[in-house]
């Protein structure tokens, strides 16, 4: 019953969020600020993790595929598939849920407990629209770019790992990543990313916006936001995979 109440409140929140911004110039300014805070500032961690995850996937595959009957180009093939289909969109989204989700939840939560949201409301500003809509647009617009970069860097990480360890040749790897390539996989990954981006922006915003109490509660809300965002991402990943690939 409690969960149903939260789900209902979440959708009521979204109704307030998706209203016309009161001033477009202010909205634009907020949007660019959010692109920087939620997108550009996540570039480093996403690049770092995807590069090394790609490297590890390639090495693990190479070490586990030692039968002479299995061609080496399958290492590149497996790395490309796993990076594009799962690691980049899902794994990176879970990472972003931790990094960005806690930031969104704690920043909005702090605004709530220090009466900054009340100050917006007293001025006659739709605080949900003002605070949350730019975050949704920023993440939905920027994360597909971020995840595309993660795909590229992951595959490149596999190539570098193979070249450095001599576990497979670069020719085999390059042949493998081009083998049976279907552009729909990229489309599938980006559709998932857009959905996850929406979840990453809205669930933490919900937890932050409705926080009651002080700093301890803001911390708790932040943790809950990350947990629930990750859970919803994993669940949606299952349904989206079923819908888009099955």
């Amino acid at each position: 019953m409690k969960y149903l109440k939260h789900v209902g409140k979440y959708f009521l929140m979204l109704r307030q969020v998706f209203k016309k911004p009161q001033k477009w110039s202010v909205f634009r300014e907020m949007l660019f600020r959010e692109i920087e805070d939620l997108g550009l500032k996540s570039l480093g961690i996403i690049a770092f993790i995807s590069f090394f995850v790609g490297g590890v996937v390639a090495i693990q595959t190479a070490l586990n595929v030692d039968s002479p009957f299995i061609p080496k180009y399958l290492i590149g093939f497996a790395t490309m598939r796993s990076m594009i289909l799962e690691f980049a969109p899902t794994f990176m989204s879970v990472i972003l849920a931790g990094k960005v989700g806690s930031y969104i939840s704690s920043s909005i939560g702090t605004m709530r407990v220090t009466e900054q949201i009340d100050a917006l409301e007293v001025m006659g500003i739709n605080s949900l629209n003002y605070l949350v809509l730019p975050k949704i647009i920023a993440t939905m617009f920027f994360y597909p770019l971020l995840i595309s970069l993660a795909m590229f860097l992951g595959i490149f990480g596999g190539y570098v790992a193979g070249t450095l360890t001599n576990l497979f040749s670069s020719d085999d790897y390059l042949y493998g990543i081009r083998l049976d390539f279907d552009p729909y996989y990229i489309q599938y990954a980006l559709i998932k990313t857009v959905v996850f981006a929406f979840v990453i922006a809205t669930i933490p915003a919900y937890h932050g916006y409705y926080v009651k109490g002080g700093s301890l509660e803001v911390g708790r809300a932040s943790t809950q936001a990350v947990v629930w965002t990750s859970v919803v991402i994993i669940l949606l990943n299952y349904f989206l995979t079923q819908m888009l690939l099955a």
Binding site: T110, T114, E115, Q116, D118, A119, E121, V122, M123, G124
Partner: peptide, 20 residues
Amino acid sequence: EQRLLRQEIGMVFQGGALYD
């Protein structure tokens, strides 16, 4: 109309409520 009314209201909060 409520939004318009609120634009005629100024409020000083206990903690200031300034945007950090």
